[in-house]
Design a protein around this nucleic acid. Sequence first.
DNA 1: TTTTTGTATTTTGCATTCAATACTGCGCCG
DNA 2: CGGCGCAGTATTGAATGCAAAATACAAAAA
Lengths: 220, 220
Amino acid sequence: MERQALHDNVVGHIRDLIVEGILPPGIKLNERALCETLGVSRTPLREAIKVLATEGLVDITPNKGASVSSMSETEIGEVFELMSALEAFSGELACERISPEELSAIKALHYEMLALHARNDLPAYYRCNQRLHDRINEAARNSVLRQTYVGLNRRLNALRFRSNLNAAKWDRAVQEHGEMIKALEARDGKLLASMLRQHIVQKKEIILAELRTADKPQAS
Amino acid sequence: MERQALHDNVVGHIRDLIVEGILPPGIKLNERALCETLGVSRTPLREAIKVLATEGLVDITPNKGASVSSMSETEIGEVFELMSALEAFSGELACERISPEELSAIKALHYEMLALHARNDLPAYYRCNQRLHDRINEAARNSVLRQTYVGLNRRLNALRFRSNLNAAKWDRAVQEHGEMIKALEARDGKLLASMLRQHIVQKKEIILAELRTADKPQAS
DNA sequence: TTTTTGTATTTTGCATTCAATACTGCGCCG
DNA sequence: CGGCGCAGTATTGAATGCAAAATACAAAAA
């Protein structure tokens, strides 16, 4: 194993632990414990934590240590809001730049999602959905946009809201996807952009509403 | 001075050196030298470098050290492209959320810019311009958007293209600003967004063209 | 003269060590 | 009985030390 790989691996490893939900939001990161888990000393580990903090996945409190970032409701809303703009912009660019092969791949994913919807397999549907949006983002052919998108997406994934969509909303999301694919095929950038934006805003509303109903009962 | 402040100060300090152009793109960051300049040991310095690398201001080559990031022409174009979307979105949100005071402040900046334009003071105009766009971005009231915007802006500022706009283009930019202010006053989000986007795309074209003419002569 | 190769020096990456701050738990006092 | 203070411990932040890699340089051979 190369020498520098160590540091980057540590970043990637901890990031995975966070995004996979193994390290849930708010949990304290004990340096010593993580060192033993990852088999490295504190120096590279601390470097990794600083990096993850700049990525927004970790919060550092001076002299008190680091913890997995737990976003406030408003911050979650803000991330979704920005995501809506990035998705919309991705869609618009994708309409100009997508290749036939990429379009086919996206259509294939869409059909896969139709199947998963019919089969009522929500987790697989989510994974497929993520991949589809990723493909659109990649089709925009802008690596800076891509980086930004991926970074924000990780912050959201770290929160692990696998919302259990009710049937009506799921149906609607599927239908929206269908229309979005049509717009992409027609290379109608403006239309796709506005649909994607609306789609994400919708998602934001659903998840924020769910967060509120999930928190309130505990308080009462 | 607090204990943790040290690390963050190191990040801020080096970042300033880069954004101010004291450390120009491509230059190698000698750890030992920087340690002496900043009066810290290598540990916090290296942490800072890793952070700056995640911010995109520094490139790290394994076992070879760090250097101030020098973007390719395509990458610069990509950053501008994303900026155009962020500015547009900021404008749209600002139209919904801006306070009368914020609007007044922006109008004041605009008038200041008119004066500077008349006085032909380009550097001051640029600073004012930057502040105006910052204010719009802040008026969008989305801290995540703000963070992303600031980060990208720093990467561009590090490149230090203080382009010496010809009169016609400068006039045009000033006029566009006037129209943008009108749209903001009218709370016409869609209009402001499209204008801002066009404005930044314009800026991108100007700067990329200038980069090409600045590079080609050296090669020939 | 140019290239190549072997060595010395520098520089990077990581581990360890040291200092300072925060937490814990126990006794003491109110 | 409960709150407060103080010692002890743990944990964080930074400096130092050490091994591996890269660079620089010089001498020798083509």
